[in-house]
């Protein structure tokens, strides 16, 4: 969850130059000056004296180690604390398998739906001019600004037993809350913006010239999209899908509210982590958590690769 506050869309997702020394040197606009300076004497106007530098580096490393590295390590340490056998046993428990299946299902639904509609929305917004565009983009960004619990709350208000449609649903024996549909809905809601936010700035930057050229050569709208636009946005699309998936699999707050925590039926992996932890089944809990942690790490790696691809794409080549 994060707020929009005057940043360009997708800023939180790609706010940094690639974490490579080369990349900093490759930046335009006189980038020599951005090159970090090592081992310069005190009195050099371009950097701080050595002891200060050391302290700053030490502070940064310590802070990150304590707050980020250690928690990650703890996950795996606990998961394997009773040995590899126990680890895999925990993962193959029926509840665990059910949770994994449910997580995968919900992620597939969310990614699938938001992929299609994200592309459609990005096309409408990036390739045309109309009033109310900012408002529309703000609406699309809304799930980002809202606490996950509130994201779940809104669906309870609609579908819960005392919700607006609750009685009607009960009368027809349709279960939305405390069942897969509710979980899917809540997940779709919180992952709604990811694909659109990745695509819109990309498509805006690419402009409409190639599409106009295709149209002037006789291509239909669909032909233009599939043959011209899609190949140009494929990295941005993958990026959006990647983040959408990561969030869909890891969502906790919203899903927790709508799921009812019914063992073996309506628990996603994050929810199962919670239940097992509260029952002091630490190894099992952290075993599942370790899967999610690995997902996060893989997501980060792929994300970095994709960012590099995307940045390359912005280099002036054609045009």
């Amino acid at each position: 969850m994060s707020m929009q506050s005057g940043l360009a869309p997708a800023t939180e997702l790609r706010t940094y130059a690639p974490a490579a020394d080369i990349a900093i040197d490759a930046l335009p606009s006189g980038s020599e000056r951005a090159r970090p300076l090592a081992g310069t004497a005190a009195g050099n106007p371009r950097t701080e004296p050595a002891p200060v530098r050391l302290i700053i580096i030490a502070l940064a490393i310590t802070f990150l180690s304590v707050f980020v590295v250690l928690p990650l390590v703890v996950v795996f340490a606990q998961a394997f604390s009773k040995g590899i056998g126990a680890y895999f046993a925990a993962l193959t428990e029926p509840e665990a398998l059910a949770a994994i299946r449910l997580t995968l299902l919900v992620a597939a639904i969310s990614v699938g739906l938001n992929l299609v509609f994200g592309v459609i929305a990005a096309w409408a917004i990036a390739k045309f001019d109309f009033t109310g565009k900012t408002f529309l983009i703000t609406l699309i960004d809304l799930p980002f600004s809202v606490s996950p619990v509130i994201s779940g709350l809104v669906f309870v208000l609609l579908f819960g037993a005392q919700g607006y449609w609750g009685p009607w649903l009960q009368a027809h024996d349709i279960h939305v809350l405390f069942a897969v549909p509710g979980i899917a809905l809540a997940t779709v809601f919180v992952t709604f913006p990811f694909v659109a936010r990745a695509l819109i700035p990309l498509m805006q930057e690419q402009g409409t010239q190639e599409e106009e050229a295709a149209i002037s050569l006789g291509a239909s709208g669909l032909q233009t999209f599939f043959r011209v636009t899609l190949p140009n946005i494929k990295w941005g699309l993958l990026y959006g899908v990647l983040l959408c998936n990561a969030r869909a699999m890891g969502e906790f707050g919203a899903v927790s509210v709508v799921s009812g925590h019914i063992r073996g039926e309506t628990n996603t992996m994050p929810l199962l982590v919670e239940i097992l932890y509260n029952e002091y089944q630490f190894v099992s809990s952290f075993a599942i958590a370790s899967l999610l942690a690995m997902l996060a790490l893989i997501t980060l790696v792929v994300k970095t690769i994709l960012e590099r691809r995307l940045d390359e794409g912005q280099q002036p080549s054609d045009h």
Binding site: A246, G250, M269, P270, E274, F286, A293, L295, A296, L300
Partner: peptide
């Protein structure tokens, strides 16, 4: 990137 429940526990 880390799921919040994982971070929590």
């Amino acid at each position: 990137a880390l799921p919040t429940a994982v971070a929590g526990v």
